[in-house]
Every structure is written in C-alpha cells, then in structure tokens.
C-alpha cells in the first residue's frame, strides 16, 4: 500500500518554565494507507505529541510531515484547520462531546465546515450513527448516554466527514473491558471495511491486539525493528 503519512527528521520539544524538554529528535516514520497501528509506551514517551503532529494539531520544530504526498507542516493556520476537517477524525479518551448538543448534533459538527446541503448532512449523520449502532439515540444528549455510547457518538463524529485518518488517544481508557472491546471492534470494522487508516495510542495490551501492528515508543524513539516491519 502507498504511504499515507511520512514523517521525516522530526524534532519536537516543549518548554516547561525555563526547562526545554525534547520529545522527538530526528524522528522518521511512514504509515501506509489502510494501516491500523497501536502505539504503546510509558507516560511522557511522546505518544500524544505524535498524534498531535500527525493530526495537524501541533507543528514540529524541524522536519517535514507529508500526508498523501503533500506537506502539511508548512500550512497556514486556516489551511491546516481546513485540512484537519477534511482528512482527520479525532477520538479522545473522555469522548469530548459537547454537552449542549444531542448525539446527532455532535455528529453533525464537522459537517458544518462543509458545503453539504442540510438534507445530505442529515443523511450522513444518520449513516454515521448507524455504523456505530446508535441511530435510536440520535436525540439524546451526552449525559443521557453511557460511556460506551458516548464514545460511539465520538466515533460517529470522527467518521462522518469521511476522513482517511482516524487518530485515537486512549479511546477505551475510560471504559470497562466488554465496552472497550465493542469500541475496538468498531474501530477494527472501520479499518477493515472502510479502509480507514487508524493510529491508536493505548496503554492497554488487550486493546493493542485489535490493531494490525503495535509500535512501542520510548523517550521519543520507536523500536526500529517494529518500525521496519
């Protein structure tokens, strides 16, 4: 499969107070389209920073990031926002749904950034909710849904604009085993049947088994053998 993402010579550091903390030093990585990668590693190893860089939520200090053959690290803020809207779906550990909106309205949020007519938007929302098995809960607010249901709404929100890339930050970290397995099964389904490329950060080895492969990250470095595989 061709590469969907290429990271070349990425440097990234943060400043905390007067201290400069290096996260990545010349990180190189490529991710083929249609891959499902679980990224594991201790806290502070750079997992979330990696997701932020891949999703255009943060910029590298040095190096280039290519998505589908085009550089995204040098896009302007508005261009990057538009790129995120079109290409990336984010799924967070704590769902991050808007409490004032119903499930359907939460799912519709990314479609506000498109030119789709209202009827088409409604169709897409209904389809996304159907994919995650929540069409009956469309009019419920997040507080009326269980944790697993909220995460499924978040997945529906992530896929409704049909992005190529799904970035999941501990998507089952707040769920019990059975519900977590349901969510992971859904992600697996999205990868296998819809061809979504998924990068999932997790501490849970059982969750990582749902991915096609697992990469271990430690102190900003991947295990070279896993990366080459």
């Amino acid at each position: 499969m061709p590469d969907l993402i290429r990271l070349a010579d990425i440097d990234k550091s943060y400043t905390r107070g007067k201290e400069r903390i290096a996260i990545f030093d010349r990180l190189n990585m490529h991710i083929p389209a249609g891959d499902f990668i679980a990224v594991m590693g201790p806290s502070g190893s750079g997992k979330t920073t990696l997701l932020n860089l891949l999703g255009g939520a943060d910029r590298p200090d040095k190096g280039t990031i290519e998505f589908d053959g085009k550089r995204i690290d040098n896009l302007k803020e508005n261009e990057l926002a538009r790129w995120r809207a079109a290409n990336v779906g984010f799924i967070f550990q704590f769902y991050n749904l808007m409490p004032i909106l119903t499930a359907a309205q939460n799912v519709e949020l990314p479609l506000m950034l498109t030119n789709l007519p209202a009827a088409k938007r409604r169709d897409n929302v209904a389809t996304a909710l159907k994919v995650v098995g929540l069409e009956e809960r469309a009019k419920h607010r997040p507080r009326e849904l269980s944790g697993g249901q909220q995460q499924r709404v978040a997945i529906a929100r992530a896929i409704v604009a049909d992005p190529k890339l799904l970035l999941c930050d501990e998507p089952t970290g707040d769920l019990d085993r059975a519900t977590a397995d349901e969510i992971l099964g859904t992600l697996q389904l999205l990868n296998r049947q819809l061809g979504k490329t998924i990068i999932m950060v997790t501490h849970d080895a059982a969750a990582a088994k749902f991915a096609k492969r697992t990469l271990h990250l430690d102190k900003g470095k991947f295990d070279e053998r896993e990366l080459a595989a």
Binding site: E77, N78, W83, L113
Partner: peptide, 14 residues
Amino acid sequence: KEFGVMKTLGFSSG
C-alpha cells in the same frame, strides 16, 4: 477544552 476539540474538528480560530 471544548474549543480545543472544535479546533481539532477543523473549526478555525477565526
């Protein structure tokens, strides 16, 4: 946090 989420979804700062 909601603003952060909206920005990740693609809403511009503007």
